[in-house]
Design a protein around this nucleic acid. Structure first.
Length: 837
DNA sequence: AGCAAAATGATTTTT
DNA sequence: TCATTTTGCT
């Protein structure tokens, strides 16, 4: 039995040694690193060194286990050992001393493979692995299970999914595949897309899966609601088809895994026992299913650490529930909470602005970031005429900055909508500013790439009917919809896959007419499948053969100059495949592996700060990144915060969080812009400055007003003031112009502004509407209305317009009809004709 | 079956 | 505005 004095000194020395080991972190961060046991919530503000904490925490677990908080002392500790520690904690100890000290300070170190680290992006997972390998050595570093929820679940399901009747080769469907499949289901169930759109149904199914409701449970729960009953039917058929195709969508990956954990406890136990420590990054972005998934695993050892920032929860529309992070303390009793509030990224001014904006939110844990960084420059807020001026201002400011010694890559432009990128792109190109757009149209979403991938998917899994239908007549092979419809029916009747039917199309009289053409197609696929199964051939060889044999590439090559980009993309995909083959951990890289990577990949993963170019991306995509100078265009009510947020406080809070995220991307200088008028989606809007601007304290900002209501230069006419908002803003919030509409339905989701609303609002404001000239007679081609006009309605008959209210892209008319009485109708949908007395 | 014209939809999108 | 999807026609 060791002497208590020795014990106490040993423990205290061990702590000092560990503190020295992790001395590069601040106190809070270190506390998070050493807190290894039980549930832990780390509230990590923007730029607070969150990733560093995660990495060091894992490193600590692998190297020292739970040594810091443990009072365990090994029996063999001698006076000599104490001396080693004493030397190790002061001055510059020798390597030998250090090595022995490290040995002495281990308490239940955890093997790297028993640590699970969940991230949201592949990029984050890869980064984590790279930095861990760097810190712990390749050996341990690569053994830490760092992956996304989805790829981790996919791995589990490939191994154990047979319990649910899935093969280990199941295909992963993306949203487009799901849409196609749902369209099929709706056709068969006779659900009109006028009544329920594909999107609505898939959204609802997504929510059901997120709530872990099976089709049957969903049906039972909502049997009283006829609309939901229809959705339930669609859900049932959709899941059935997915199973038949041996396919899972993104939501299935989690939903099915949890379902399997519930029904087959032995499988769950395997994973519970394996993972002694678990960490979840970006916890504020988890949804309910992910919460249940991770909770189930955590029931094993209970060592669950989640890291996140409730103020940066911006993916509610993807199912993220901020309640997961807000309620963590309730859900995991005895949980410890550590706040990381010191920011290492931004200036004091930028942080103060961010704090001020986010403090207006009610639904939050509450955190105030602080920094030791300098005060920094003030935030510049500029009001300009329109989006072209806005873009020009940004281009000019960047050029000035570069002239003053900055790099192009120091600048980022973060916008709310991808559609805002167009104007920026034009201006930057005009000024020869190198730029890069991240996100928006994704490479893997382009038509030709999706087709090419669909071919590979059919080769990999011919039961993948969605992929098969996508490419079977692409290029045209004379296999039309009618034939495929019949073939599908036969397949359904026989309980086999569509491809099986096609394989011996000759046997079925219904489709025998097309049998020859079908055989030509299946012969090609069979040939390609043989190539795929032959280990002598690489994936990229298979890919090239596929492009040749199917005639798919030739199709685009013959399509002329305008489609040259598609051919380029097809070649680009070949490089991706070769890349995959090079980097694949497998001895012989498999097509299946490539397809899985593609299915779970996004373009943001490819963002690297490599080239010296200005970066353009959405505020969402920018989360986690930082730039010396940030421009935030489009700070206008109706754009940011968006229109839909006005009536929905929760949405408003989400947009406010997004604003917080955007502001905190800036390290040194922040420019916020807004335009008096803006052309978006083909119609012009007139907007007031964003209400978020009012939240930023005056003393932090420099305000410039270039808004001249038509003047196109800010050179001389610039009014500068050091208070808030230089001049008065003219204009009104409303819309002019859009495409014409001939609709005569009252279905609000189809509401569109028609040519009827097109006008040049010179004087600004509703007055322009009121002053407007008499409506021309042609309906739908320039018709406008004013109060007192006599009109005729298809259903309601004759009436007089009593009131006009602008609403969205349209106008709400209140009409007193002779027979039908007072009615409210949308101008562009009422299909009114003027009545002249 | 295949084409051109018309309609449609558009916030954000870690997988 | 713009790309893609649906439609209406031959």
């Amino acid at each position: 039995m060791l002497d208590k004095v020795i014990k106490d000194e040993f423990i205290s020395l061990r702590r000092r040694f560990l503190e020295k080991e992790f001395s590069r972190m601040n106190d809070r961060q270190r506390e998070a690193v050493f807190c290894t046991e039980g549930p832990l919530l780390i509230l990590a503000g923007a730029g607070s060194g969150k990733t560093t904490v995660i990495i060091n925490r894992i490193a600590n677990l692998v190297k020292y286990g739970n040594a810091y908080e443990s009072d365990f002392v090994p029996d063999y500790v001698t006076d000599g050992d104490l001396e080693v520690l004493r030397q190790a904690v002061k001055g510059n100890p020798s390597a030998e001393i250090l090595r022995r000290a490290e040995e002495l300070c281990k308490v239940n170190p955890c093997p790297a493979w028993r640590i699970l680290a969940i991230t949201f992006t592949n990029k984050a997972a890869d980064e984590l692995k790279a930095r861990l390998s760097n810190m712990l050595g390749e050996e341990d570093g690569s053994e830490v299970q760092a992956s996304t929820f989805h790829s981790f679940c996919a791995r589990i399901l490939r191994r154990d999914g047979h319990h649910l009747g899935y093969s280990s080769h199941f295909t992963i469907y993306d949203t487009d595949d799901s849409r196609r499949l749902m369209k099929e289901c709706m056709r068969e169930l006779n659900i009109s897309d006028k009544f329920l759109t594909v999107k609505e149904i898939l959204n609802e199914i997504g929510r059901a899966k997120d709530s872990l409701l099976s089709p049957e449970e969903y049906m039972a729960q909502y049997s009283w609601d006829s609309r939901k009953k229809l959705i339930a039917n669609a859900y049932v058929m959709y899941q059935k088809r997915m199973k038949e195709a041996d396919a899972m969508d993104f939501d299935d990956l989690l939903y099915q895994t949890v379902r399997m954990f519930r029904t087959v406890p032995e499988v769950l136990e395997v994973y519970q026992n394996r993972f002694k420590y678990m960490m979840v990054d970006e916890y504020q972005d988890t949804n309910h299913a992910q919460f249940v998934f991770i909770s189930m695993l955590a029931q094993g050892y209970g060592n669950l650490c989640v890291v996140g920032d409730d103020d940066q929860s911006i993916y509610k529309f993807r199912g993220a529930t901020i309640e997961n992070i807000l309620g963590f303390e309730q859900q995991f009793k005895g949980c410890r909470v550590i706040r990381l509030e010191q920011n290492y990224r931004s200036t004091k001014n930028i942080l103060k602005a961010a704090n001020a904006v986010i403090s207006k939110n009610v639904n939050r844990k509450g955190k105030t970031l602080w920094t030791q960084n300098p005060e920094g420059e003030k935030i510049e807020i500029h009001r300009v005429d329109n989006e072209d001026e806005e873009s020009r201002f940004i281009a000019d400011t960047i050029l000035d900055g570069v002239a003053a010694g900055r790099k192009f890559s120091d600048f980022a432009v973060l916008y709310r909508m991808n559609a805002q990128a167009n104007a920026l792109e034009r201006a930057l190109a005009k000024s020869s500013v190198p730029y890069r757009i991240v996100g928006g149209h994704r490479f893997f979403d382009s038509l030709e790439i999706r087709d090419a991938i669909a071919y590979l998917r059919v080769i990999n899994n011919p039961n993948d009917t969605v992929a098969l239908l996508r490419i079977i007549n692409q290029p045209k092979r004379g296999i039309g919809d009618v034939t495929l419809q019949k073939a599908s029916n036969i397949a359904g009747g026989l309980g086999v896959s569509l491809y099986d039917v096609l394989l011996d199309a000759g046997h079925y009289p219904d489709i025998s007419r097309a049998a020859f053409k079908i055989k030509e197609f299946t012969d090609i696929i069979e040939e390609l499948r043989r190539i795929n199964e032959n280990p002598d051939y690489s994936i990229h060889y298979l890919y090239n053969r596929m492009l040749e044999l199917t005639g798919y590439k030739a199709m685009w090559e013959q399509a002329g100059e305008s489609e040259a980009g598609r051919v380029e993309n097809l070649n680009e995909l070949a490089s991706s495949i070769i890349d995959y083959e090079k980097n694949s951990p497998d001895e012989i890289p498999q097509l299946e592996g490539f397809l899985e990577e593609v299915a779970l990949m996004t373009d943001i993963d490819n963002y690297e700060a490599g080239s010296d170019a200005v970066v353009l991306m959405t505020m969402h995509s920018a989360k986690g990144l930082e730039f010396p100078v940030v421009f935030l265009p489009g700070f206008e009510d109706g754009i940011f915060p968006g229109m839909q947020t006005f009536f929905n406080p929760e949405e408003m809070e989400e947009d406010r969080r997004l604003c917080y995220v955007a502001i905190t991307r800036a390290k040194e200088k922040l420019y916020i812009l807004n335009a008096g008028s803006r052309m978006i989606f083909g119609s012009t809007t007139h907007n007031r400055p964003s209400r978020f601007l009012a939240d930023i304290p005056e003393e932090l900002i420099l305000s410039f007003d270039h808004y001249g209501g038509g003047s196109s230069s800010w050179g001389d006419s610039t009014s500068q003031s050091y208070g808030k908002f230089g001049g008065g803003y003219g204009g009104f919030s409303g819309y002019e112009g859009a495409r014409g509409s001939a609709g005569n339905s009252f279905d609000t989701k189809n509401v569109r502004a028609g040519a009827a609303a097109r006008s040049s609002v010179a004087g600004g404001g509703i007055s322009a509407l009121e002053k407007n000239v008499k409506a021309p007679a042609k309906p739908g081609a320039g018709t406008r209305w004013k109060e007192g006009d006599m009109v005729s309605h298809k259903v309601f008959g004759k009436g007089v317009i009593m009131a006009i209210t602008p609403m969205g892209n349209d106008y709400l008319l209140e009409i007193k009809f002779d027979k039908a009485g007072m009615k409210k109708v949308m101008a562009n949908f009422a299909n009114l004709t003027p009545v002249t007395n």
